[in-house]
Amino acid sequence: MKIYHNNRCSKSRCGLEILNNSKQDFEVVDYIKNPLSEVDIKDILKKLGFSPIQLVRKNEAIWKENYKGKDLSDSQIIKAMSAHPKLIERPIVVKGDKAVIGRPSENICALLK
């Protein structure tokens, strides 16, 4: 199991706490310090069952200033998330071939069952 984590985010810290309390083994991936490749993002999207735009934090300044209102392909959105990891919703917890966004945190609890 993995959690894609941003320590500056309270929701992400909450997700990490849930995993710590679960007593299950997991890996913490700081995707801000170690940005995800386009292949990694595509794999996560597949596990989430999301289109790329569903994984974007649309209120981030980077999005508003550089991408909002543009007609972007899925590939361009994935490239943007890889180049600017702050654009990726968080936290993401992956278990096997399934993944959830930990907003709300109940999503993580459901994945752990």
Rank of each mutant, 00 (worst) to 15 (best):
residue 73 S to H: 03
residue 43 D to M: 08
residue 76 Q to Y: 03
residue 53 I to H: 03
residue 91 P to W: 03
residue 50 F to C: 06
residue 103 R to Q: 09
residue 111 L to S: 10
residue 86 K to C: 10
residue 100 V to D: 08
residue 27 E to W: 06
residue 70 K to M: 01
residue 79 K to G: 07
residue 104 P to A: 01
residue 88 I to M: 00
residue 94 V to C: 10
residue 5 H to R: 11
residue 113 K to P: 05
residue 74 D to M: 00
residue 79 K to N: 12
residue 63 W to Y: 15
residue 68 K to C: 03
residue 6 N to G: 09
residue 113 K to C: 04
residue 102 G to E: 07
residue 95 K to N: 14
residue 60 E to D: 13
residue 61 A to Y: 12
residue 30 D to Q: 07
residue 6 N to T: 13
residue 5 H to S: 07
residue 90 R to F: 04
residue 37 S to R: 07
residue 28 V to M: 08
residue 31 Y to D: 10
residue 63 W to A: 00
residue 91 P to Y: 05
residue 80 A to V: 01
residue 59 N to L: 01
residue 77 I to G: 00
residue 94 V to R: 01
residue 84 H to S: 09
residue 21 N to H: 12
residue 23 K to D: 15
residue 53 I to G: 06
residue 22 S to N: 13
residue 75 S to V: 09
residue 12 S to G: 10
residue 102 G to Y: 03
residue 97 D to V: 06
residue 25 D to M: 11
residue 13 R to K: 15
residue 18 I to Q: 04
residue 42 K to Y: 06
residue 74 D to L: 01
residue 25 D to E: 15
residue 17 E to R: 15
residue 48 L to K: 14
residue 62 I to K: 03
residue 21 N to P: 09
residue 83 A to S: 14
residue 73 S to I: 02
residue 58 K to M: 04
residue 86 K to I: 15
residue 82 S to E: 10
residue 102 G to D: 11
residue 30 D to R: 06
residue 20 N to I: 07
residue 51 S to Y: 11
residue 88 I to N: 01
residue 49 G to K: 11
residue 88 I to W: 01
residue 41 I to W: 05
residue 90 R to V: 14
residue 3 I to C: 04
residue 8 R to N: 14
residue 62 I to E: 14
residue 90 R to W: 04
residue 48 L to T: 14
residue 95 K to R: 15
residue 80 A to Q: 00
residue 23 K to C: 13
residue 11 K to F: 05
residue 11 K to D: 06
residue 36 L to A: 09
residue 55 L to R: 13
residue 112 L to N: 05
residue 43 D to L: 07
residue 98 K to F: 10
residue 86 K to Y: 08
residue 113 K to E: 14
residue 111 L to D: 12
residue 103 R to P: 04
residue 75 S to I: 09
residue 103 R to S: 07
residue 74 D to C: 00
residue 70 K to N: 01
residue 104 P to E: 04
residue 77 I to A: 01
residue 56 V to G: 01
residue 48 L to P: 12
residue 20 N to T: 12
residue 41 I to H: 06
residue 49 G to D: 13
residue 7 N to V: 04
residue 14 C to Q: 15
residue 111 L to H: 07
residue 106 E to I: 15
